[in-house]
Computed example of a mutant assay.
Amino acid sequence: MKSFESWARGMRNAAERGEEFWGVFYGDAIIAYGVAKVYDGIVDLVTWKCNYEKYKNFYPSYGLVYKMTEYYLGKQGIKYLNDGNRSFTEHSYVQDFLIKKFGYRKAFTKLNVYFKWWLKLVIILIVPFEKCVKNKVALSFIRMYKWSR
């Protein structure tokens, strides 16, 4: 988003979908934004993005997450703020960032995974060779299988 006008249009569209739009401004420029959806005492952080190339010294993501957390958990009395699920390919460090910088904690849930019989057999056969597997899809299947046991 380049201007306040496009920001306002985005806020109207988000409100129609039941989402709340947050922004970090520097002058007239939006340097970070977040979208949250509130339901049943839970806030889902649908997305949050920052312009790190030009404004990294301002730490816009810190301010954005701090204010959203303060508002939802403090002022609104929401019990849970969900930033999404951890990826099986473990390519994102968002959860680690929130735990380290803002005192978030992990909330575990049981993972129920059901594979076709032949795929489960293949996974069981390659689990002992996990360290040799380089394919991310195969590794994610192995992780799902191991985490669901």
Results as ranks from 00 to 15, higher is better:
G23S: 04
E20F: 01
I78G: 02
I78V: 14
V137R: 05
A36C: 15
K110C: 09
K110N: 12
K79D: 09
E20P: 01
K134W: 05
S6D: 14
F115P: 02
F97G: 00
V43D: 00
Y52C: 06
L45S: 11
K106H: 11
I42R: 14
I78E: 02
V113W: 04
L139I: 06
W7Q: 03
R143K: 15
A8C: 07
L111V: 07
P60A: 08
K101L: 07
S61A: 06
A138N: 06
S3T: 15
Q95G: 15
R9S: 10
D28P: 03
Y52E: 13
N135C: 05
Y26R: 13
A36G: 07
K101S: 12
Y59P: 00
I30R: 00
I31E: 03
S148P: 13
L98Y: 14
K2T: 15
D96P: 13
Q95P: 15
K67S: 06
W22T: 00
Y80H: 13
D40W: 12
V94P: 02
Q76H: 04
S140T: 14
Q76N: 08
Y72F: 08
V24L: 04
W117P: 03
V137K: 13
W147F: 11
K120Q: 14
E20D: 04
A8G: 05
A15C: 05
K106V: 08
N51T: 02
S140Y: 10
V137M: 10
F58L: 02
K54N: 10
Y72R: 00
G23F: 07
N51C: 05
T69D: 06
G77V: 01
I30T: 10
Y71F: 09
K110D: 08
E5R: 10
C50K: 02
Y80F: 09
V113S: 03
N85Y: 11
D44V: 12
G27T: 05
K131H: 10
K75F: 01
A138M: 14
D40R: 15
K56G: 02
G84C: 09
I99Y: 07
E19M: 13
Y114N: 07
K106Y: 14
L125E: 05
Y26V: 06
H91D: 15
D44N: 14
N82K: 00
K134I: 01
D44H: 13
K56P: 00
K67I: 09
K131I: 07
R9E: 12
E16P: 03
I123D: 06
Y145F: 07
Y66N: 11
D83V: 10
W7L: 11
R143T: 15
F141G: 01
R105E: 14
H91E: 15
N85M: 10
A138K: 09
Y59I: 03
C50L: 02
K136G: 10
K37V: 11
D28W: 02
S6W: 12
G103T: 10
G23M: 03
G63F: 07
T89A: 12
Y55G: 01
G74M: 04
F58T: 04
E53H: 13
F141V: 01
Y114D: 04
Y80W: 11
L119Y: 10
S92I: 12
R86N: 12
K120N: 09
V43K: 00
A32G: 09
N13P: 02
K2D: 14
P60G: 06
S6L: 10
K49P: 01
I142A: 04
D44E: 13
M11F: 09
Y55I: 03
K67E: 11
L98N: 08
V94M: 05
E53K: 08
K106E: 12
F21D: 03
L121N: 08
